[in-house]
């Protein structure tokens, strides 16, 4: 299976509120991330928009319904549709989350947490291998934000992800906000988390806003927090330049505001790399 080469650039998620901006002219981003499921349809306006966007920008497909941790295996019909979309759009890569969303009968449409056990790891790896085979390409998997851990957990999340990468050849989409959120909620050190990952497999980074509280909630409804920017700088110092984007899914501001926030990612990256080089 082909390797995914490192791609450095700065991108945004394509949201309905910004369709007109992306259709009007080139937007100053290197790549655009789209939610796969919104375009896994037979035709219609969303696909036409995506094809126009694709004619101007690199695109990455980001899914929310693969349910890679499902004890009931992967959904072949879903994978066939995702493959058709990937063949049509030729994205830089296809990603989803380390989570589960469905049982044999019901789909929660939410990214639910997995117990970190060897049993779950075996299930996930088997599902990843099947998904990669069906798509004909390796995938990226994103570290989730989570609000509870299971009494039966046998390992830490970074150990789980590392083993997934080792066994299946998949890559990582590192959501820096999710690390920040889960580190607070589960009282682990972000340094241990980052230090424990195979960073050479990171191909993309997500940044997003969260809601603070006793339990921090990953809301994607506000600007990226200062603590997350600091963690991002630390990650970039170790990983090097890598595709970075900002996710905003609620309270979506006008595009210029998000572009300004993306400029901050550019400057944090620049500063972090200069410091790393100087050191």
């Amino acid at each position: 299976m082909n390797d995914i080469k490192t791609y450095s650039g700065f991108g945004l998620g394509l949201r309905k509120d910004h369709y007109a901006d992306f259709l009007e002219g080139p937007v100053p981003v290197d790549f655009v991330e789209v939610i796969s499921e919104n375009f896994m349809v037979d035709g219609g306006k969303p696909l036409r928009v995506l094809e126009q966007v694709r004619s101007r920008h690199d695109v990455v497909l980001h899914g929310v319904s693969l349910s890679i941790g499902s004890a009931y295996g992967v959904d072949e019909a879903y994978l066939a549709r995702l493959r058709a979309l990937a063949d049509r759009i030729e994205p830089l890569w296809v990603s989803d989350h380390l989570c589960w969303t469905r049982t044999s009968v019901h789909n929660s449409h939410d990214l639910l947490p997995l117990p970190l056990t060897t049993e779950a790891l075996d299930v996930v790896c088997e599902n990843v291998e099947r998904a990669q085979e069906a798509l004909g390409r390796p995938m990226l998997f994103e570290n989730p934000s989570s609000y509870l851990s299971f009494p039966e957990d046998e390992m830490r999340e970074w150990e789980f992800l590392s083993e997934m990468v080792r066994r299946t050849g998949c890559y990582l989409l590192l959501d820096v906000n999710n690390i920040y959120v889960s580190a607070h909620n589960h009282e682990f050190s972000t340094r241990d988390y980052i230090g424990g990952l195979p960073l050479e497999s990171v191909r993309q980074i997500h940044l997003a806003g969260h809601e603070s509280g006793t339990i921090i909630v990953d809301t994607h409804d506000r600007a990226v927090a200062d603590g997350v920017w600091a963690l991002y700088a630390a990650v970039i110092a170790k990983v090097g330049p890598v595709a970075t984007m900002i996710e905003r899914d609620a309270n979506i501001p006008a595009l210029p505001e998000l572009l300004r926030e993306l400029d901050r990612a550019r400057s944090v990256t620049g500063a972090s790399l200069s410091q790393a080089n100087a050191a």
Binding site: A71, W100, T103, S104, L114, P115, T117, E119, V123
Partner: peptide, 8 residues
């Protein structure tokens, strides 16, 4: 399986 039971 234990995982299937947990998910249900």
């Amino acid at each position: 399986s234990g995982l299937a039971r947990r998910q249900q």
